[in-house]
């Protein structure tokens, strides 16, 4: 009897998961169908119709016409600088907040969290004035400053939560062995926090890769444009080339998928740890 309940539960469990998986995959299937159709095929048949002829060349066209290599290179450069630099700053801040005893640690943590509550849209005008005044508008250092500023609160929240789960006894043992604060951070806390850091890498990489609003305002130079801005090149004043845009979208998600696959085994542990205590 118990066995039957357990197998029924399993069937229901899998059925729900399969339905959810289909629901999540369906938009991707439609994007794929659109990416391999001709414009006429797309316009003359419903979006869910199977392509009359598979146009693999759309991916090549999207790559060449959409200057995807340049946009991907730019975005990758921004991600490779911003993500590790951000995590380093966030980890140092979280370490100070959890391990260095100082009076204002809780108010300071709350101060960092306030950053998460400010809508980006409200900051566009003052940030534009600021960057213009210090001649950093349209430059990489300017972009990094803004991206780091917006990313730091979330990173500190995740890492602070995780750092607090690491037993204090380890710190004491390190202290007895003559380890400095920086040594503790580098030799003990950081290695033990790999799940949280991997989680942050995934989140931060995805957020930076997909960021659009700030990039569209603060990157005016065509040769510095990121992938999200590049995708708009397929949209004219009066019409949109959906086939090439879909092909470009599929190409553009590949790096994010690679990063996710590389770090996903740490992902759940990292999230679980960050919300404890």
């Amino acid at each position: 009897m118990e066995l039957r309940i357990s197998s029924t539960r399993k069937v229901v469990h899998y059925a729900v998961l399969i339905i959810l998986a289909i629901l999540f995959l369906l938009p991707l299937v439609f994007i794929f169908f659109t990416a391999v159709k001709s414009n006429a095929d797309l316009a003359s048949k419903p979006i869910y119709a199977f392509p009359a002829k598979i146009h693999w060349e759309n991916f090549v066209k999207a790559w060449d016409q959409g200057k995807m290599s340049m946009y991907m290179k730019n975005t990758l450069f921004i991600c490779l600088v911003k993500v590790p630099l951000g995590i380093l700053i966030e980890a140092l801040a979280a370490f100070a907040l959890t391990r260095l005893k100082f009076r204002w640690s809780i108010p300071m943590f709350s101060f960092f969290l306030i950053g998460m509550m400010i809508p980006m849209q409200a900051t566009l005008v003052p940030l534009n004035m600021l960057l213009n005044a210090i001649h950093l508008k349209g430059t990489y250092p300017g972009i990094f400053l803004i991206y780091l500023g917006f990313g730091i609160p979330f990173g500190i929240m995740i890492l602070r939560g995780f750092f607090r789960t690491i037993p204090k006894e380890l710190d004491e043992a390190a202290l007895i062995d003559g380890c400095s604060d920086m040594g503790k951070f580098l030799r003990i806390i950081l290695p033990l926090s790999m799940p949280a850091i991997a989680t942050l890498i995934i989140f931060d990489f995805m957020a930076t890769w997909n960021e659009f609003l700030l990039a569209q305002i603060f990157i005016s130079d065509q040769s510095m444009r990121t992938i999200t801005l590049g995708l708009l090149a397929f949209r004219g004043d009066w019409s949109t080339d959906y086939t090439l845009m879909s092909a470009a979208v599929l190409i553009s998600v590949l790096p994010v998928m690679i990063v996710y696959l590389l770090f996903q085994k740490y992902f759940v542990n990292g999230l679980a740890g960050s919300v404890k205590g």
Binding site: L80, V81, L85, I87, T139, Y140, M224
Partner: peptide, 25 residues
């Protein structure tokens, strides 16, 4: 992994300090 991460961080710091290669300034 730690070594790799540290190298990337150092490279990032240097790159950020160096500024954009397409700067309009």
């Amino acid at each position: 992994l730690m070594l790799g991460l540290t190298l990337v961080m150092v490279a990032s710091l240097l790159a950020a300090c160096g500024g954009g290669n397409n700067s309009q300034s």
